[in-house]
């Protein structure tokens, strides 16, 4: 299994927002999305990753991109994690059925959590750039996202 390649249409999927509302492929339409798949809430690398990306949200907005953080943690765990970080990044839960969206994007780790991966999807819900870290302990720099946005 590997992360979806550029040019691939985003699959049909359903994630859950912090308001416990469904978030589907249709919600990707009309704007550029940066999907950040991360392994576990409350772990050190994931915390560092989301705080780093929080710092560059103004620059992402300037590029017309919205960033979403996706894990297989439950909505309530994600909410607590978001609160602890003081993060404004939208969290999307792939808890039930667990990992189904991660599997559809090719980033489900054999241990049931997401790989650490980034996927940039254009306003037509086509994957334009993707990156999977070599290991879950590797934190992809924010520069990679901005390089990837050039493909949109």
């Amino acid at each position: 299994m590997s992360v979806l390649a550029p040019g691939t249409p985003a699959p049909q999927f359903t994630l859950m927002t912090q308001d416990e509302q469904p978030f589907t492929r249709a919600d990707l339409l009309g704007h550029t999305s940066v999907l950040v798949f991360y392994p576990y809430a409350f772990t050190s690398v994931c915390s560092d990753q989301l705080t780093l990306y929080e710092e560059v949200l103004p620059e992402l907005a300037q590029r017309g991109a919205t960033l979403y953080a996706i894990s297989t943690d439950a909505v309530h765990s994600q909410a607590a994690f978001r609160h602890e970080l003081g993060s404004s990044i939208a969290q999307l839960s792939d808890f039930e059925p667990k990992g189904a969206t991660c599997r559809a994007f090719g980033v489900l780790h054999e241990h049931g959590h997401p790989q650490r991966a980034l996927v940039i999807v254009d306003s037509g819900a086509i994957v334009r750039w993707s990156h999977q870290a070599q290991s879950t302990s590797e934190l992809p720099g924010a520069n990679l996202i901005f390089d990837g946005l050039d493909a949109v």
Partner: peptide, 24 residues
């Protein structure tokens, strides 16, 4: 300085750069 570090690929602290090699 922070943003120049980001552009260079720094993602965590501390990160050492020596001779073009990164050591987080």
């Amino acid at each position: 300085q922070t943003r120049a570090g980001m552009r260079a690929g720094v993602a965590v602290t501390p990160t050492l750069i020596a001779g073009g090699t990164f050591a987080p």
